[in-house]
């Protein structure tokens, strides 16, 4: 189960509506206890994919990861996942998402349709890397 405060979901939606029709995203910081994850902060990160591909691709730099992981470690939190948008497509992981994914990491996908956040779903890659399992997303 993934616990997400409504205020943080609101910040995610506002950001991803702003990047529409391109993809946007960022990191999820929080606490993890086995399968249960509580998200306590979100950090938008600039999409560095080639501009003409940003309508269906999103990427961060390794330096973004290092900076955010160091911040999480310093705050006693964990880098528990990341979120990104699927403009005018379902909030379901693509094959491209799966090929670039890690287990034990929360992937929140927001479908943004016509500039409005329409659906928010959470996923996790299975240990054998074959599929994403949908996670129950509990809004607090």
């Amino acid at each position: 189960m993934i616990e997400l405060p409504r205020s943080l979901q609101g910040r995610i939606h506002e950001q991803l509506q702003g990047t529409y029709p391109n993809e946007g995203g960022g990191f999820l910081l929080g606490r993890q206890d086995g399968e249960a994850v509580t998200i306590v902060d979100v950090h938008p990160v600039e999409n560095v994919f080639e501009t003409e591909e940003q309508h269906h691709r999103y990427a961060m730099t390794p330096q973004d990861w290092a900076r955010m992981e160091d911040e999480a470690d310093a705050r006693g939190l964990a880098l528990v996942g990341y979120y990104h948008s699927h403009p005018d497509h379902p909030a379901v992981p693509s094959e491209y998402d799966r090929a670039h994914a890690l287990p034990n990491f929360v992937y929140i996908i927001v479908s943004v349709r016509g500039g409005q956040a329409a659906e928010t779903r959470a996923w996790r890659l299975t240990d054998d890397r074959t599929v994403f399992d949908e996670q129950r997303l509990l809004l607090l």
Partner: peptide, 10 residues
């Protein structure tokens, strides 16, 4: 050394 996953989605 540091292992850093490249985050990418689509």
């Amino acid at each position: 050394l540091r292992i850093i996953p490249a985050i990418a989605g689509g």
